[in-house]
Design a protein around this nucleic acid. Structure first.
Lengths: 149, 149
DNA sequence: AGTTCTGTAACTAGACTTGTTACAGTTATG
DNA sequence: CATAACTGTAACAAGTCTAGTTACAGAACT
């Protein structure tokens, strides 16, 4: 299964951005993402390590963004939560006695690096604020359609 | 685990390109990739569906490329064997009563599409021949170093 | 007829992902 | 100080995916 961590992370960060001034509880986030609060807390742990959020334990605890939504780029979010490669290299070391087998892995590794870089560059074109703007825009369009009915 | 199908596919295609005039057996390919022949045959099945190879059953059977290595681009190979996304969307449908939850999925989907497109564009910059050239180049460099010793 | 292939089904082992329960530690409230 | 409401984290279950393996039917040459 392709991991949903990135999708959930962007969702959670967008929720936090929408409530900048107060600490948000994992249970509340979990309701919106439609998952368990522990899943959210695990995610927030990764986002905390990346310096994107801070949490507070105890009574009236919760989580906040550390930066303005316009300063958080999606490649940072990706980096924080996605651990897998777009494609994996060989599961077993290829036969070193074969001309191709003995030298193909570094070539594929280089291509892998280039793909990774391009993915990150694509994502760096979007800030969290861009995502929120687009979400709100879709919301407005929906409402208009409902009014027409 | 990130699937190694793409890496193995490029490896196998490079082997076929290196032996254009004869049919190559799955067992021989498996030795170079260092895996089981059935794993290779499953892979060849996908590559056949994509029109990149043809196989023949029976005595003196085996597999050949259908095109020149310079005409096979890596995005075609990727398309043929990789089924997963760079990142997955939500495992469960987000809460529709939440402003973010109700509208974030299509936004993420659009970004997903853009990432996919960029990955394919990156890979389309390489032909199978390019990979083979690079592999051979590395092989030559290695031999030089050995001679120096 | 016998040999040597491919194609494919069926199964196993291991890894990964999400979801869940449980609980220790932390912080505010009364 | 006792209680309530949080986070952080460990532990486990269920489902899915990947690669590897065995087995065998069908095809093609000798």
């Amino acid at each position: 299964m392709a991991s949903s961590q990135f999708a959930m992370a962007v969702h959670v960060l967008a929720m936090l951005a929408n409530n900048c001034d107060e600490r948000i509880k994992s249970g509340y986030l979990a309701e919106s993402v439609n998952t368990n609060a522990v899943v959210i807390r695990r995610l927030l742990c990764d986002l905390h390590e990346a310096g994107l959020v801070v949490s507070q334990t105890g009574y009236s605890g919760g989580t906040c963004l550390t930066q303005a939504p316009s300063e958080i780029r999606l490649d940072e979010v990706f980096e924080a939560v996605v651990k897998t490669e777009v494609f994996g290299l060989h599961p077993n070391k290829p036969n070193p006695e074969c001309d191709i087998g003995s030298n193909i892995v570094p070539v594929l590794g280089r291509i892998q690096d280039e793909v990774n870089l391009n993915v990150r560059q694509t994502l760096s074109g979007y800030s969290l604020q861009d995502v929120i703007d687009e979400v709100i825009q879709i919301g407005k369009t929906k409402k208009k359609k409902e009014l027409v009915k």
